[in-house]
Design a protein around this nucleic acid. Structure first.
Lengths: 207, 207
DNA sequence: CGTTATAACGACCGATCGGTCGCCAAGTCA
DNA sequence: TGACTTGGCGACCGATCGGTCGTTATAACG
C-alpha cells in the first residue's frame, strides 16, 4: 500500500488504537505485541509502529481510548441524572450494564491493566492510576453531595462509599470473567442498592 | 556446580517455586521469564527448567504453592474458630491482614493471575479457576451454616455473601496496589462487619 | 505541472524468548 | 571400589520481540 490522505491516516490510527484496546483487554497491555496487532490488522509492524514511535506510546494511547470508552459508557448516562444519590444509582446501573455487555472483549480494560501495571513504574502506570484516582474522586464527590442532601445516613464516609462501589464492580468483573458466574451482577446490584439505601426490587435486566 | 543430594534437589525445587511465586505476583505469571528467574537465583536456565520440563509446569507449581500460602494465611487462623458467623469474621480479619502484610510482594497472587489468565484457556487457567471456585464455595458454605444457625437475617443469600466478601477483598487489593490507599482495609473491614451483622468498633491493626 | 511531505512497506537489527542437547561431577548403591 | 543415576551447566536452536532504515507511492501544495 501507499500513503493515504490525512483524514484516512487518522482513521487508520484510530482503528489501530481500537483494536489494541480490544486485544489488550484479553492479553494484557504488555502481553500484546506489535507483530500480533499488525497481523490482526493486515498491516506491517512498521506501519503500525509508525503512528506511535514506541510501544509505550501505543499503550498510552490505548489507555486514553479505554478511559474514554468507560467514561462514555458509565458516566455518560449518569451525567444527565440529578447529582447525589440518584446519580450514584444511575452510575451503578450503567457500570453493571457495561460489565454485562462485555464492552471490552476481555473484561474491564482498566481493572485488567491496573493489576498488570500496579508494580511497574512508568508513564503507563501513572496514566492508569490517574484515571482510577479521578474516577474514585468523582464517586466520592457524588457521595458527599448525596450526604449533604441528606440522602445518606449521617456519619457515612463518602470515601468508603466510593471504595465499596468500586470493590463490587471489580468483584463482578472477576466473578464473571474467571468463574463465568452470571449471578454476580445481580449480587452486586443488590449490594449497591443496599449501600445507597435504595429499594432492592427485582432488577431490570438490560436487553 | 554439580549434582546435590536428593534432599537438596527438592530444596532447590522449592526455592525455585518460592521465588517464582514472588516474581509472578509482581510481573505476572506469563510475564515472568525463565531467564529472569534463573538469573535471580544465580542458576542457569536449563538448571531451572530441568525441574519442571516446561514453563507451563512451572506455572502450575507456582499456582499450587500460592494457593497453599493463601490457605495457610487466611483459612489457617479461621479453621480454629467455631463454624458460622464467627468463622466468617475470622476469615475477614485474616484476609485483610494477609493483604496488608503484603505476603506476596506484588499483591494477592491469585487475584493478579486470575485476571491475567481469565481469557487464556489452558491448564493454568483451569487451576486458578478451580482454586477460586473452591474458595468461593467454602465461603458460601460457611455463610449457609451461619444462616442455619440464625446468625444472619432470614432470606440472606449465602452466595451473595460469598461474592460480597470476595469483592471487598479484591477491591482492597486494587486500592492498595494501584492507588496506595491505606484506608482501603479499614473500609473493607467495616463493610465486612456490616455485611455479617457484627459490631463495627474500631479495628485493631495488625502488628 | 513539479516539488515536497508522509503513510505504509519489506528487510533487517540485536536481544531475548522457551526449549533441547550433551556433558560432567557427585551422590547412591551393589 | 566401580557402575549407575541424576542435578545442574554451557552452548545452542528457531522463533519472536521492539525497533530502525531506506524505499515507494501518493496526497497536498506551489
Amino acid at each position: 500500500m501507499a500513503r493515504r490522505s490525512v483524514a484516512e491516516a487518522q482513521q487508520t490510527r484510530a482503528t489501530i488504537v481500537e483494536r489494541s484496546v480490544a486485544l489488550a483487554s484479553i492479553e494484557g497491555l504488555e502481553g500484546l505485541t506489535i507483530g500480533r496487532l499488525a497481523g490482526d490488522l493486515r498491516m506491517s509492524k512498521a506501519g503500525v509502529l509508525g503512528h506511535f514511535g514506541t510501544k509505550e506510546e501505543l499503550q498510552l494511547a490505548s489507555v486514553a481510548e479505554a478511559v474514554e470508552v468507560f467514561t462514555r459508557e458509565v458516566w455518560g448516562p449518569a451525567a444527565e441524572v440529578a447529582p447525589g444519590r440518584a446519580r450514584l444509582l444511575a452510575i451503578a446501573d450503567a457500570w453493571l450494564s457495561y460489565l454485562e455487555r462485555d464492552v471490552f472483549p476481555g473484561g474491564c480494560f482498566v481493572t485488567a491493566t491496573a493489576i498488570e501495571f500496579d508494580d511497574r513504574p512508568g508513564r503507563v502506570r501513572d496514566a492508569i492510576a490517574a484515571a482510577q484516582g479521578r474516577w474514585m474522586a468523582l464517586l466520592e464527590a457524588e457521595a458527599r453531595r448525596a450526604l449533604a442532601q441528606g440522602e445518606l445516613p449521617r456519619g457515612t464516609d463518602p470515601a468508603a462509599v466510593a471504595f465499596h462501589l468500586n470493590a463490587l464492580a471489580v468483584g463482578t468483573n472477576q466473578a464473571r470473567r474467571l468463574l463465568h458466574d452470571d449471578r454476580a451482577p445481580d449480587h452486586a446490584w443488590r449490594a449497591m442498592r443496599t449501600l445507597l439505601g435504595a429499594p432492592r426490587a427485582r432488577r431490570r435486566h438490560p436487553a
